[in-house]
Amino acid sequence: MTLATTGAVLGLLGGFGLVLIVAGVRGRRITLDERLAPALRHRDRTSVLLRVAEVRPGRFGSVERLVTPWVSDLATWFERLGSGRADVQRRLDRAGSADTVEQFRARQLVWSALGLAGGLATAVLLAATRGSSVVVLGALVLLAGASAFVACDLRLSSAASRREERMLSEFPTIAELLALAVTAGEGPVQALERVSTTARGELSSEFGAMLAEVRAGAPIVGALGAMADRTGLPALTRFAEGVAVALERGTPLAEVLRAQAQDVRESGRRALMEAGGKKEIAMLVPVVFLILPITVVFAVFPSLATLQIGL
Rank of each mutant, 00 (worst) to 15 (best):
S169R: 11
L180Y: 03
A117V: 11
F171P: 02
S112N: 06
P172V: 10
E170Q: 14
V71A: 14
G84D: 13
V135S: 09
A181G: 07
E165G: 12
L116Y: 04
A75K: 11
D153S: 13
R162I: 10
G185I: 07
L126R: 05
G82R: 09
R90P: 01
G119C: 11
S161G: 04
R85V: 13
V71G: 00
G185Q: 05
A179C: 03
R162M: 07
V182M: 07
L154H: 06
A117Q: 02
M167A: 09
C152H: 15
L137P: 06
F78Q: 15
Q89F: 03
V135K: 00
E186W: 11
S72R: 15
L156Y: 01
S161F: 02
S72V: 13
A184M: 08
G115E: 09
A121M: 13
L140G: 06
F104P: 00
A86S: 12
V134K: 00
F104S: 01
G84F: 06
S132V: 13
V71H: 01
S132P: 00
V135L: 15
A179S: 09
E186G: 04
E170Y: 09
Q103G: 03
A113I: 13
T122W: 14
W77I: 12
W111Q: 10
V110W: 11
Q89K: 08
A123I: 00
A139H: 02
D87L: 13
A179N: 04
T183R: 14
R162K: 08
L180S: 12
S97L: 14
V134A: 14
E79F: 08
W77R: 15
W111H: 12
L92Q: 07
L168T: 14
A75M: 14
E186P: 00
V135G: 10
L180G: 04
V110Y: 05
L125M: 13
A184T: 07
L109R: 06
R94Q: 15
L142P: 00
T100D: 12
S158E: 10
S169W: 05
R80H: 14
G118V: 11
A128D: 06
G115A: 09
G119Y: 12
Q103N: 01
T76L: 14
S97C: 05
T122S: 15
